[in-house]
C-alpha cells in the first residue's frame, strides 16, 4: 500500500544519508522523496511516498524513522486531509504546426509553457501525482524527449475533516 509520510528533521550534516540508509538497510521501498527547508530555521521537511506491504511494515517504518536522532516529528498523512503536489517538467517534440494543438491540451491541466525551441516545447505542470500521470500520457503521442519530476510534497490542510488523529511521535505506549 502506498503511504505519504511527512517528517520534520534537524538539518544536520548527513541527515538525508542517515534516513535513506535506514530505508535501504531495512528494505523499505521509497517511491519518492522531497526535501526542503521548513518554516523553522535549521529544520527541514521531508516527504516520502513509500510502498509498504502491510500495517506491520508501516508501523516499523514510522518507528524506525522516529528513532533517528535527527527526526523531530513523523506523521503518516495518507488518511488525512492534505494538500499534496508534485511538479513535472515535460519536454515534447513540437514543431510550429503542433504547438497550437499541444497548447489546447495544456490548458485544462493548467500547465504552462516554460521554454520553446524550434523543435521542442517544455511544459510545467503541477498537481497530484495522478493528474501528472494523465498529462504525460496525453502528451506521449507527440513524442516526449525528457521528463523531470520532483516527487510529492505535502502539507496538512488547515482544517481537518475528521477530529485530529494522534501523531505517530506522540506514542501513547
Amino acid at each position: 500500500m502506498k503511504r505519504i509520510i511527512s517528517c520534520t528533521v534537524q538539518n544536520r550534516g548527513g541527515v538525508l544519508n542517515r534516513i535513506t540508509g535506514m530505508f535501504s538497510k531495512r528494505h523499505f521501498n521509497i517511491e519518492s522523496i522531497t526535501v526542503g527547508e521548513s518554516e523553522t530555521e535549521g529544520m527541514a521537511k521531508m516527504t516520502f511516498v513509500v510502498n509498504v506491504e502491510d500495517e506491520h511494515k508501516l508501523e516499523q517504518l514510522t518507528k524506525q524513522l522516529h528513532k533517528q536522532i535527527d527526526v523531530i516529528k513523523v506523521s503518516d498523512i495518507t488518511e488525512k486531509s492534505v494538500v499534496a503536489r508534485e511538479l513535472a517538467l515535460v519536454k515534447v517534440t513540437a514543431n510550429s504546426q503542433l504547438r497550437a494543438e499541444i497548447q489546447g491540451l495544456i490548458d485544462p491541466f493548467r500547465g504552462t509553457v516554460v521554454d520553446i525551441s524550434k523543435e521542442t516545447m517544455t511544459i510545467q505542470v503541477t498537481g497530484k501525482t495522478d493528474k501528472i500521470d494523465a498529462f504525460i500520457l496525453l502528451l506521449k503521442p507527440f513524442g516526449i524527449k525528457e521528463i523531470a519530476r520532483t516527487g510529492v510534497t505535502a502539507l496538512l490542510r488547515g482544517q481537518q475533516a475528521k477530529p485530529y488523529v494522534a501523531e505517530v511521535n506522540s506514542l501513547t505506549i
Partner: peptide
C-alpha cells in the same frame, strides 16, 4: 526502544 516492540512478535501489551 519502541521500534523493537512488535518488530518480530505481535505484542498485546507494548510498554516503552
Amino acid at each position: 526502544d519502541p521500534a523493537e516492540i512488535g518488530k518480530i512478535i505481535r505484542t498485546d501489551v507494548p510498554i516503552v
